[in-house]
């Protein structure tokens, strides 16, 4: 029971990170119908930007308050990652809009390869480890020498994710931008006819997706304290799994899907086999798509004859 509780806490933490990345997949898929393969690598780039920002703040500027440092790191990572994703959309995807279905996918795969190798070349292939940013934890339950703990960093991840999701939900549900986005999802040409700036809306979608990936990247760096150039692919695929599980196109679906994938992965590691934890996530993906292609919250795709 204690193990279960601990894994539940760990799983929700991991799931929050997946959920944040998954929103990026689901939004981009919703608006331009493309699996943004490079999104996992955008997340990895964000973690590296956060790493650089953190080092500048702590080793050069000597900021000792972790709260201030973390806040600044988060902002910096969001800004730079948004810029990166905005430029990616402009260069690699926009020229292919309305083109053949496979072209953007290949372009995105190319971009994914480019990003991970760019980081490898520019920052080196080794793992980058930083001293723990946040230490300490609450002990929730102790039983037979097994302490169920909720660490401060887990708490921070939960808190930041929750706050951002509320802001983000407000943005999509209540603002002009959100309305424009939903209009473009339905029909881009019609949206353009009624005065929605489609290009700008799509650009902003990529910016928001990147900002959320940047939060995920920062949280990932804080949680694990280590990042490498190859850390984009697997979390990316898992986050995509989360988006599919939740029903692609559905924002709450992405978050819940993320939590589920996080939980499945930690539970599987704890109770079955840590070696095969990725198999668990991939199997969930395959099983979901085969038996529940519209996901938990998605609209079913009816075949029109």
């Amino acid at each position: 029971m204690e193990v279960f509780l601990q894994q539940l806490i760990n799983g929700i933490t991991l799931g929050s990170i997946y959920g944040l990345i998954a929103i990026g997949y689901t939004m981009v898929f919703g608006i331009i119908g493309m699996v943004n393969f490079a999104h996992g690598d955008v997340f990895m780039v964000a973690a590296f930007v956060a790493l650089v920002a953190f080092l500048i703040l702590t080793t050069w500027l000597g900021i000792s308050s972790i709260a201030v440092a973390l806040f600044i790191v988060l902002i910096v990572a969001m800004l730079f990652t948004s810029l990166v994703n905005w430029i990616i959309e402009r260069l690699a995807y926009r020229p292919l809009r309305g083109s053949f279905r496979l072209a953007p996918l290949i372009s995105a795969i190319g971009m994914s390869i480019f990003l991970s190798n760019f980081v490898q070349v520019s920052q080196g292939p080794r793992n980058k480890a930083i001293p723990p940013m946040v230490q300490g934890d609450f002990v929730l339950v102790t039983h037979n020498d097994y302490a169920v703990t909720l660490s401060f960093k887990q708490l921070i991840i939960w808190g930041v994710t929750a706050v951002l999701l509320v802001c983000f939900w407000y943005l999509v549900a209540k603002t002009r931008l959100g309305r424009a986005q939903r209009a473009c999802e339905q029909d881009q040409r019609m949206a353009a006819l009624v005065g929605v700036n489609v290009d700008q809306t799509i650009s902003l979608t990529f910016v928001i997706a990147a900002a959320l990936a940047a939060v995920a990247g920062t949280m990932y760096l804080m949680y694990y304290g280590v990042v490498s150039f190859s850390d984009g692919f697997v979390p990316g695929v898992k986050a995509f799994t989360a988006a599919v599980l939740g029903g692609i196109g559905s924002l709450p679906g992405a978050v819940i899907g993320g939590l589920l994938i996080g939980l499945i992965e930690t539970m599987w590691s704890a109770y079955f086999s840590i070696d095969y934890k990725d198999v668990a996530a991939f199997s969930v993906l395959a099983i979901t798509l085969i038996f529940l292609p519209q996901g938990l919250f998605g609209r079913p795709d009816v075949e029109k004859v």
Partner: peptide, 21 residues
């Protein structure tokens, strides 16, 4: 040789943009 895959990825994007078909 470090730049092999970097350029490979870059080339994929460029060729797709120039010749999507």
């Amino acid at each position: 040789t470090q730049y092999r895959m970097l350029l490979f990825g870059f080339a994929m994007v460029i060729i797709m943009v120039l010749r999507p078909r």
